[in-house]
Computed example of a mutant assay.
Amino acid sequence: MSTGHVLLGLLATGPKHGYELKRAHDAHMPRAKPLAFGQVYATLGRLQRDGLVTEGDRDRDAGPERTSFALTDAGRARLDEWLTAVEAPAPFVASELLAKVVVALLAADSRRAGDYLAAQRAAHAARLRELTAAKLDPESALGDVIAADFAISHLDADLRWMETTIARVGELQQGVQA
Rank of each mutant, 00 (worst) to 15 (best):
A42I: 08
A42R: 15
A42F: 05
T43D: 01
T43E: 02
T43F: 00
T43L: 00
T43Y: 03
L44F: 03
L44N: 07
G45I: 05
G45V: 14
G45Y: 11
R46G: 14
R46N: 08
R46A: 15
L47T: 04
L47I: 09
L47H: 06
Q48E: 14
Q48M: 06
Q48S: 13
R49Y: 03
R49I: 07
R49C: 07
R49P: 03
D50G: 10
D50Y: 12
D50L: 11
D50S: 13
D50R: 15
G51S: 01
G51W: 08
G51A: 09
L52W: 08
L52F: 06
L52V: 12
V53Q: 00
V53A: 12
V53T: 13
T54M: 07
T54G: 08
T54D: 09
T54V: 08
T54R: 09
T54K: 11
E55S: 02
E55Q: 08
E55F: 04
E55G: 15
E55Y: 00
G56H: 08
G56Y: 00
G56K: 02
G56E: 10
G56R: 04
D57G: 10
D57M: 06
D59W: 14
D59F: 07
D59M: 05
D59P: 01
R60K: 11
R60Q: 09
R60T: 10
R60G: 07
R60V: 07
D61W: 07
D61A: 09
D61N: 14
A62K: 15
A62S: 15
G63W: 00
G63K: 03
G63T: 01
G63H: 05
G63D: 07
G63Y: 03
P64K: 10
P64R: 13
P64T: 10
P64Q: 14
P64C: 09
E65Q: 15
E65D: 15
E65C: 05
E65W: 05
E65H: 11
E65Y: 06
E65M: 15
R66P: 13
R66E: 15
R66D: 00
T67E: 06
T67N: 11
T67I: 14
T67H: 13
S68D: 01
S68N: 08
S68K: 03
F69H: 12
F69W: 13
F69I: 02
A70N: 07
A70R: 10
A70F: 06
A70S: 14
L71K: 06
L71Q: 09
L71M: 13
L71E: 01
T72W: 05
T72K: 05
T72D: 09
D73K: 10
A74M: 04
A74G: 13
A74Q: 07
A74R: 15
A74E: 13
G75F: 02
G75W: 03
G75A: 01
R76N: 05
R76C: 05
R76L: 10
R76M: 07
A77K: 08
A77P: 04
A77D: 09
A77M: 04
